[in-house]
Amino acid sequence: MLIITCPNCGSRPVEEFRFGGEIPQPPESITDPFERDLDQVWMFTNVAGVQTERWFHDAGCHRWLTATRDTSIDRFVD
């Protein structure tokens, strides 16, 4: 079972949280402002590895938190 540590509520099963997705990060190589906006809105890095992402504690404090997870094995990392 995946456990997320919420800064407000403590350690809870992942079922209590809503997934907010990876934090959009247009690559530095994109310099055109329109292209950066496009990337920010639509594109995903979708990394197979460590991803910085947002979670919402739906069953608890109703606050967003940032976590890092290795998507290749679906485990949170510190």
Partner: peptide
């Protein structure tokens, strides 16, 4: 105070 899921309910 503790907040979370119990029996599938918040």
């Amino acid at each position: 105070l503790a907040q979370g899921m119990a029996a599938g309910l918040p």
